[in-house]
């Protein structure tokens, strides 16, 4: 009986598919930076640094969300330094889901920055915490929360 799990890497042409481990690697970096952001926004005297770091992360999310996940700076790091140490991926993945997830990350972090600049208390910390949950789920459990949220948008008829 043939195995039902696809094992061929030819699921998508190389020009279209991405290595699914690349977004997870990026999510791991994002998780560390968001954890640092959260600590900074909650420490007296470093709140402004935390908001600034959150703004930098929002720019990186915008990069991945609009230039496309394949042009993401962490993706470049992955291909340069991590991929050569791993075997080839079991299969390639459509770049649309992680690209959409980057936009979700942009909305959350940008909202945190804007609300923090407007003086809303805890806005940066809450945004960093929410984004950290999503990034950690992606990095550790391979769960793409941003991808799941797309269905919720469909249900709310917002797409």
């Amino acid at each position: 009986m043939p195995d039902t799990r696809p094992t061929t890497p030819a699921a998508l042409p190389t020009s279209q598919g991405i290595d699914p481990r690349s977004p997870r690697f990026g999510a791991a970096i994002t998780s560390v930076l968001l954890a640092v952001t959260l600590l900074l926004t909650l420490t007296r005297g470093t709140e402004a640094v935390g908001v600034a770091l959150l703004a930098v992360l929002a720019v990186v999310f915008a990069w991945g969300g609009f230039a496309g996940i394949r042009r993401h700076p962490y993706g470049v790091l992955y291909r340069r330094f991590v991929r050569p140490r791993l075997g080839p991926p079991a299969e390639l993945e459509d770049p649309a889901p992680p690209t959409f997830a980057q936009r979700v990350g942009l909305v959350i972090t940008a909202a945190g920055v804007v609300l923090a600049l407007l003086g809303v208390p805890w806005a940066a910390a809450v945004a960093a915490a929410l984004a950290l949950v999503a990034a950690l789920l992606n990095a550790v459990f391979d769960v793409c929360l941003g991808c799941l949220m797309y269905v919720w948008l469909v249900r709310a008829r917002l797409t």
């Binding site: 699921a11 998508l12 299969e91 993945e93 459509d94 889901p97 997830a101 797309y150 269905v151 469909v154």
Partner: peptide, 12 residues
């Protein structure tokens, strides 16, 4: 959905 990471593998 178009943004579903596991849908193509599930289809196969």
């Amino acid at each position: 959905t178009p943004t579903c990471a596991r849908c193509p593998a599930t289809a196969r």
